[in-house]
């Protein structure tokens, strides 16, 4: 069993308010094929006026994951980092990270995705933010 920190970001598209993103970091114990236990969850919201760049995304992920007490590598979906090659992506982080590989890690990312998406929906509703997609 391994402890990992699965991270997912929801809201990468532009709405009228700008780029309103919610990042979820979930500390999970996984086996190669399943999730055994969820230890801890941290979420953080970010509002950008312009489209976030790769370095912005790295900062968002690291600042969310650092609040998690349990240690373990950060596991991210490849698409979240603009499909950047893994060696280059690794060099941008100050701690251990890799892309999802095993079935257990994929399931963990799925959990993080549900957390970030539902948190974002809740925040949008609570703040009465305009969710219409921005069109030029």
């Amino acid at each position: 069993m391994f402890t990992i920190i699965a991270v997912d970001i929801s809201g990468r598209h532009r709405i009228h308010a700008g780029y309103f993103m919610v990042c979820a970091a979930v500390s999970i114990e996984v086996t190669p094929t399943s999730i055994e236990k969820v230890n801890e969850i941290n979420t953080a919201a970010f509002l950008f006026s312009a489209a976030p760049e790769l370095t912005d995304i790295v900062k968002i992920i690291e600042s969310t994951a650092e609040k998690i007490k349990a240690k373990g590598p950060i596991i991210i979906e490849r698409g979240d980092l603009f499909n950047t090659d893994e060696p280059l992506a690794k060099s941008l982080f100050t701690r251990e990270m890799r892309y999802q590989e095993s079935i257990g890690e994929r399931k963990a990312i799925e959990v993080a995705h549900h957390v970030s998406l539902s948190s974002r929906n809740l925040l949008l509703k609570e703040n009465g933010m305009d969710v219409r997609v921005f069109e030029e």
Binding site: P32, T33, E101, I103, R106
Partner: peptide, 22 residues
């Protein structure tokens, strides 16, 4: 091996709930 295993897991993960022996 790591790359190939990751590809196998990717193909299986969403649809399969079977026991796996590597």
């Amino acid at each position: 091996i790591r790359k190939k295993l990751a590809i196998c897991h990717e193909t299986l993960w969403e649809k399969s709930t079977s026991n796996i022996i590597t």
